[in-house]
Design a protein around this nucleic acid. Structure first.
Length: 340
RNA sequence: GUCAAGGUGGCGGAGUGGACAAUCGCACCAGACUGUAAAUCUGGCGCCCGAACGGGCUACGGGGGUUCGAAUCCCUCCCUUGACA
């Protein structure tokens, strides 16, 4: 992946934006037009940049949008001795779904490791990957990398820190790494999860000062396409999508998950479209309440996504309520692809 | 009609004589965030003035009263719910 010259920088097209904007549809559309339009494209494949679609058997709630007969195919790509599969929709390969089962914990680091392999493989086959997703951090980690990503979790440390309050954690961090502690903003300095990770990193660094950094900055030629819509429009789409998912059988999907041994406490079940049902299955919530909560959670999620995208990435935004927007995207992407 | 329990901010729901513009949850607004990121976390949230310490006004169903002081006590009216008729 290390390219000696600028010309050989691998190209990566990114389609991102908040939930319910039709990112995958656009990507599929782009795949089609790019391939059919010109001889330069030997093919386009989609990679999901999403923290929830990695879970098997969670299709409806995470919005994988798989057509009825969609089959998971095994590729000859392997990661840590495990095969990696993909789906094919409209003859386009989609990677990054169904990477783990819902009992497993997941994180950016796991995602990045495997997604890097997938991307490398796509580039080796001289195809253009389109990274599609709404998990900003995951996308950013693929594009720019994360410096401390190779610093592993320390389970026993986490366990011992588990019950400490934010001020206590902050105190511990301040002892280990005063600079880091001082650099935290008011929000993070009160965020137990962040503090624990910061302590984890600080401790790790203290232990191995001499270890050389393995971190390498990535060198990609990438463009960010962002999809958005006015708030009211998005809210309407969210409502419609919820109805759709109810019809598709989200309730049964959850029943199946629970039956197979997945707990509400599992990370996968903290996902939107799933977590809201907990009270319902416990008998303390009506379905209407579930739907109301679900809708609210989706709306709030969109807000957080937009804030993150706006402040963290340099994105070319497209309003999906403009009928011609796919053409605009197409034009832009083609220019970008041909350049250099 | 009688009895009982109630009427608090957009909603739910605390407070039951001063520390109350009123805990908390939801909603809403503005944000943070490089190993759980669909997660986690922060701030704001009656109106007006002020950069800020702060100040002013209006508010706990309506009206009236007691009191230095009332969302909290008393009277009365209106409304809701439950029970008995």
């Amino acid at each position: 992946m290390d390219a000696p010259t600028l010309n050989l920088r691998p190209k990566l097209l990114i389609v991102c934006g908040p939930t319910a904007t039709g990112k995958t549809e656009l990507a599929l559309h782009l795949a089609e037009v790019l391939v059919s339009d010109s001889k330069i494209y030997s093919g386009v494949e989609i990679v999901s940049g999403d923290s929830r679609q990695v879970y098997k058997n969670m299709d409806i709630g995470t919005g994988k949008g798989l057509p009825k007969g969609a089959k998971y195919k095994i590729s000859n790509l392997k990661f840590k001795n495990k095969t990696i599969g993909y789906y094919e929709i409209d003859r386009v390969k989609i990677w990054g779904y169904d990477l783990v089962n819902p009992k497993e914990a997941y994180s950016v680091s796991k995602y990045t490791e495997i997604a890097d392999e997938i991307l490398k493989n796509i580039w080796e086959r001289r195809k253009l990957p389109i990274l599609v997703g709404g998990t900003g951090l995951y996308i950013k980690s693929l594009v720019s990398g994360i410096e401390t990503i190779s610093i592993p979790q320390n389970k026993s440390l986490r366990r011992s820190l588990g019950k400490k309050s934010a001020p206590e954690l902050f105190e511990i961090l301040a002892q280990l790494d005063p600079v880091k502690a001082g650099s935290l903003n008011t929000s993070d300095s009160k965020n137990p999860r962040r503090l624990v990770r910061a302590i984890e990193i600080a401790q790790w660094k203290l232990k191995r000062i001499k270890r050389k950094k393995t971190y390498q900055k990535k060198n990609l030629d990438s463009v960010f396409i962002g999809l958005y819509a006015p708030k009211e429009m998005l809210e309407k789409r969210i409502q419609e999508r919820i109805q759709e998912r109810l019809k598709k059988g989200i309730e049964d999907e959850i029943k199946r998950l629970l039956k197979s041994g997945v707990y509400w406490e599992d990370q996968s079940m903290q996902s939107l479209a799933y977590k809201e049902w907990k009270g319902y299955f416990a008998g303390s919530k009506t379905k209407d309440e579930v739907i109301k909560n679900w809708e609210n959670d989706e709306k709030n999620y969109v807000k957080r996504q937009m804030i993150w995208f706006k402040t963290n990435l340099n994105i070319h935004w497209f309003d999906i309520t403009k009928p011609v927007y796919p053409n605009d995207v197409e034009k832009m992407v083609k220019e970008w692809y041909i350049s250099k």
